[in-house]
Amino acid sequence: SLLLVAEPEAIFAMPDPTVPESDIKALTTLCDLADRELVVNIGWAKHIPGFPSLSLADQMSLLQSGWMEILILRVVFRSLALEDKLVYAEDYIMDEEQSKLAGLLDLNNAILQLVKKYKTMGLEKEEFVVLKAIALANSDSMHIEDSEAVQRLQDVLHGALQDYETTHHPEDPRRAGKMIMTLPLLRQTAARAIQHFCSIKQDGRVPMHKLFLELLEAKA
């Protein structure tokens, strides 16, 4: 219930209507959107029960490891109602053609594989919010100071997922496990996304805001 309440409002991409469509414009729009979503996601993390009790250093380490998984999982959940399209924002939906134009066809296809997986499973909002918190708590940072505290956070979130599934999906006793088993593909997809945006950064043609750059550098 706390995670459902903590879930941030949708934000808007607001692509500049005066700039002609191009790969640079699409990537600039996405990087700007990602930067604003990151600010929102850091605020969200503080509402995960137990997260604010971690040391500031461990909160930072988890976010530095897990931020892209959180961004992608949010795009995936928003896209569940559509067919072969990614809802980066309510006003920024990418189809195959736009993905090609932005040079994001491979990455977006990888994200669509996750969408397909969750569609088949019938992912619910309750499951989505817990999985997102689990992805953060389980982001496998190499720099955790108090790994027992992080383990306790993982246990609490894992317990919440199991309780939800026991109550709402008694017909499938393995549903919680199935949910957890989607996380490797999320990790893999996030790694691809990081790699792609690191090479865009090196290219230097797309302006990026400071928080996005800071977190991209944490992964480099």
Binding site: L56, A57, K210
Partner: peptide, 15 residues
Amino acid sequence: KEKHKILHQLLQNST
């Protein structure tokens, strides 16, 4: 960790 100033600031803000 010094490099991650914005993340640090955002986590320290109370909102």
